[in-house]
Design a protein around this nucleic acid. Sequence first.
DNA 1: ACTAAATTGTGTACTTTATACACATTATCT
DNA 2: AGATAATGTGTATAAAGTACACAATTTAGT
Lengths: 246, 246
Amino acid sequence: MAKTKTNGQLKNIKTLSAIQSEVKSINRIALSVDCVIFGFDENKLKVLLIRSDLKKFQSKWSLLGDLVDPKEELDSAAIRILKQRTGLDDVYLEQVKTLGSLNRHPAGRVVTVAYYSLINIQHHKLQILDNELHWHDVNDISELAFDHKQILDTSYEQLQRRVQEHPLAFSLLPKKFSLRELQNVYEAILDTKMDRRNFRKKFFAMDFLVDIEQMEQDVPHRPGKLYNFNYNKYEKKKKKWVGIDF
Amino acid sequence: MAKTKTNGQLKNIKTLSAIQSEVKSINRIALSVDCVIFGFDENKLKVLLIRSDLKKFQSKWSLLGDLVDPKEELDSAAIRILKQRTGLDDVYLEQVKTLGSLNRHPAGRVVTVAYYSLINIQHHKLQILDNELHWHDVNDISELAFDHKQILDTSYEQLQRRVQEHPLAFSLLPKKFSLRELQNVYEAILDTKMDRRNFRKKFFAMDFLVDIEQMEQDVPHRPGKLYNFNYNKYEKKKKKWVGIDF
DNA sequence: ACTAAATTGTGTACTTTATACACATTATCT
DNA sequence: AGATAATGTGTATAAAGTACACAATTTAGT
């Protein structure tokens, strides 16, 4: 590798062929993708986990992941995993961070790109036939295989931040939802209680909810109205940003 | 690779040795780190770029980056690059995202982990002796080598978001700064003008600024008071979060 | 020494947003 | 028919954000 030093600084004189030989050489690392798949059920935020296959982590649960093929895009790998595990392929997906501790994986150096996704459990409920796959309450998870607890925590924190500034919550619900269901999603994600009247006022003031003139069915009480979220209107009107607040 | 299918789902029966062989095999990818190094000078937000060394990108500027060694932590690689290029090793550093398009690099498949960092230009001004390294106005950059423009844009957007919610701006300033300098940093990052009296009111109300009882020197007008930012106090009092706002 | 120029430092009125809070209505279940 | 459980609605108060002007301090120029 061609480098020269000038006053302690590196000069940037690598040639393409030098870089190519570095890229082709043993200088490579296994890459994986791990997906934190969030769902919403029984008024709780859930995450889909699989029982770990490795002896070292026997009996521990882990996130859904796989190695990235050298000819595969990162996002494609995440989409592939989601499709394989949930049967869904049109889901909200967001990259969270990349972890690469030297000893994070027992099989050697594996750098992993973490994603989280939001899915509507109702839509795919029938597809989890693999009995090693289960939905877990996010707040009940104390330990996972590898560094997956850390990935989950970071993803959950990012979800909490982003759900307040972007209309993500709707991805966890059916297309038609009641205001109570929407509030339940926010309360589950943010782990807090909100005032019902102020919550409704806020969302009606935003003016992104469409009253579809239908009512809830099969609820053991007065049914609420059902709404859609109008993404087009949101895209046109969304705020740029606000102010300094920390 | 041992997989079985059950109703279109994958079962998770890989053994450790199967994974090890996947990890060790040709199934590996070159990894790099690219750093967006932000600075603040002449009341403008700047980014440190180097002239690209590759013919294909002749005359284009690029971010500072290097391949990650298989025995090197990701953060360490970013810190190494910052140290090599700026001489600084105690800088604000944040991972932004990982890009892995199949054709993003002419030398082959190279997945890159992007970081941004904030440094105080004054502190290291004398260390940029390499004349291929230059500070550029962030808003003057229209084209960069590889996909570096995309990395810059994403980093800049993330900086704009985060600077509003976290006390990052101070990393671009000397330890002692005047309120006007602080406001200039915010105005440069957010590309906006703010009301001077309201800005002061806001920061004094937060109560994280320490009046160090010194005045600016060598300014051609009435000097302002100098302040420190009290990170300890901030860590104790910082807000959890707020509400729904999009 | 005086004047002009530039910037600091300060307070108040107004607008917008957030919060706290209660009761009548509509449906189901027994 | 009555009990239960949730929906739907408005107002008063508190907090935060915004708009805005003038005197004081220092340097630079003459």
